[in-house]
Design a protein around this nucleic acid. Structure first.
Length: 285
DNA sequence: CGGACAACCTGGTTGC
DNA sequence: TGCAACCAGGTTGTCC
């Protein structure tokens, strides 16, 4: 579910509440939510600590505590990290509850149970999981047209698969990959190395545009995504291809198509994102 | 290196 | 209505 814009929306919402308030209790209802620690250890280690900052890197959220330890969250497909009134019923599929001294609870609810939390201890240098292997943030300075061209040059990987590779660019998922490629007029199956400098310039621009707009609209709610207060996003209204199989392309009127690429559903316009003609054989006409 | 696919889970939708 | 098949904003590991 949540890609960069959704995680960023959660972050900005929760930040004022999670910085400054203290943790008074932790309840782990689904122990597998912890990847590398036991519930009791987590409880002992974080109770009594205060939140210092809440940061985002790619699709990860990193909550730094006064002890120097950090809680690292990844919501995967259906995870919802919501600040909740303790009076509210505990929803089905709630993985953990972190009680704050401000009289609120941070709850993770996750139907598919793929979401997880790491306890990143202060004495550990290397970031847990793939957090340390992420590519640059697409909205920051390191992501330049030159960088994107560097990734693509001589690459046989289809451009959509490249955009989804978190080690190359952090935070793009299935929705925004399809939307960026549509706006740039690029077929998702194109081998990255075949794209021209102009194509990549356009793609670089559309990626940034889409992500910024989606943040402004507080993310895309197709089904499960909710922000840190339990509210849906609004960008689903602005999607031009994702989830619109059989609907008319806004640009040319042809039907949007769904195909499978890298075992992910992929939506595109077969006219506006036509596959490039195969290269002609040299010599013959 | 690149691609295909299963695994981790549950539930909603579609089609017969 | 029933039931099976297919689908899902992600990531990781295995196999070819």
């Amino acid at each position: 579910m949540p890609e960069l814009p959704e995680v960023e929306t959660i972050r900005t919402g929760l930040e004022p509440y999670l910085t400054g308030s203290g943790i008074c209790d932790v309840e782990i209802l689904y122990p597998k939510v912890l990847k590398d620690a036991e519930p009791e250890e987590v409880r002992k280690r974080i109770c009594g600590q205060k939140g210092v900052s809440l940061k985002r890197r790619g699709k990860y959220l990193i909550w730094e505590l006064s002890s120097g330890d950090r809680l690292v969250f990844h919501l995967r497909m259906t995870g919802q990290l919501v600040l909740t009134d303790p009076q509210e019923d505990i929803r089905k599929h709630t993985s953990f509850i972190i009680r704050l001294d401000a009289g609120l609870e941070l709850r993770l609810t996750d139907t598919r149970k793929f979401a997880f939390m790491y306890l990143w201890k202060k004495e550990r240098e290397s970031p847990p999981g793939s957090l340390g292997e992420l590519g640059p943030e697409p909205l920051e300075e390191g992501f330049t047209p030159v960088y994107l061209r560097g990734l693509c040059t001589d690459s046989k990987t289809r451009i959509k698969n490249l955009l989804l590779d978190q080690a190359k660019i952090a935070g793009i998922g299935n929705i925004y990959a399809d939307e960026s490629l549509f706006r740039a007029g690029i077929n998702p199956r194109t081998p990255a190395g075949e794209l021209s400098a102009a194509d990549l310039e356009r793609l670089h621009r559309t990626i940034r545009e889409i992500l910024r707009e989606a943040i402004a609209y507080r993310g895309t709610t197709k089904r499960d995504y909710l922000d840190g207060f339990g509210a849906a996003g609004a960008f689903q209204e602005r999607l031009l291809v994702y989830g619109r199989k059989g609907e008319k392309c806004v640009r040319c009127g042809r039907d949007i198509v769904r195909s499978v690429l890298g075992s992910r559903g992929t939506y595109y316009c077969p006219v506006c994102q036509r596959e490039k003609a195969p290269k002609k054989n040299k010599g013959r006409e």
